[in-house]
Amino acid sequence: MPEQKLEIQMLHDRLLVELTPEEGERRSTGGIVIPATAQVAKRLAWGDVLGIGTNVRNIKVGDRVLFNPDDQLEVEIHGRGRLVMRERDVHAIASERIEHGTGLYL
């Protein structure tokens, strides 16, 4: 029996997010190399929005969102890890939409 592919529809205020791949080591603005194994305080992460529920108001598919990955639920789809979260758990949005913002760019 062939495997049937089903479409995923997020419900309510849920988002389906793929973590943006992190580089192994980072470099500070002063040029200091920070290894991937360095212990840092809680660090927020960026992710790409793959799907949104019907009650999501401010986020669109394709936006990059800033969130705490430790507080989210993980699911595996087609062998890749994805995160499921509520819209209210997002701290910031990076998108090409022109609205009022901070004046900072990624």
Rank of each mutant, 00 (worst) to 15 (best):
P2E: 14
E3G: 06
E3T: 10
E3I: 12
Q4I: 15
L6C: 09
L6P: 01
E7I: 14
E7C: 07
I8T: 10
Q9Y: 07
M10Y: 05
M10K: 09
H12M: 15
H12L: 14
D13R: 03
R14G: 03
L15Q: 00
L15K: 00
L16T: 09
V17I: 15
E18W: 00
L19T: 00
T20S: 06
P21W: 00
E22M: 02
E22R: 08
G30I: 06
G30A: 15
G30M: 12
G30H: 11
G30L: 12
G31I: 09
G31H: 11
G31K: 07
I32V: 07
I32D: 03
V33S: 07
V33N: 03
I34M: 11
A36K: 10
T37G: 01
A38V: 07
Q39N: 10
Q39W: 05
V40W: 04
V40F: 04
A41F: 05
K42C: 06
K42R: 14
R43F: 01
A45S: 15
W46F: 11
W46H: 06
G47R: 02
G47Q: 04
D48L: 13
V49M: 09
V49Y: 02
G51V: 00
I52Q: 04
I52F: 02
I52S: 04
G53I: 05
T54R: 09
T54D: 14
T54H: 09
V56A: 00
V56S: 00
R57A: 05
R57W: 00
R57L: 01
N58T: 13
V61A: 08
G62S: 10
G62Q: 13
G62T: 07
D63P: 02
D63S: 05
D63G: 04
R64T: 13
V65I: 15
F67V: 06
P69H: 06
D70Y: 06
D71M: 10
Q72T: 15
L73N: 12
E74A: 13
E74R: 12
E74Q: 10
E76A: 11
E76H: 04
I77S: 06
I77D: 08
I77G: 07
I77Y: 06
H78L: 12
G79H: 08
G79W: 05
R80W: 02
R80C: 03
G81H: 05
G81R: 13
G81L: 14
R82N: 04
R82L: 03
L83M: 14
V84C: 04
M85L: 15
M85V: 09
R86S: 14
E87I: 07
R88L: 13
D89M: 14
D89N: 09
H91E: 14
I93R: 11
A94L: 12
S95N: 14
S95I: 04
E96N: 13
E96H: 07
R97A: 13
R97H: 05
I98Y: 03
E99V: 14
E99T: 15
E99P: 00
G101Q: 10
G101T: 14
G101P: 03
T102I: 12
T102H: 09
G103Y: 03
G103K: 02
L104A: 12
Y105H: 06
L106Y: 10
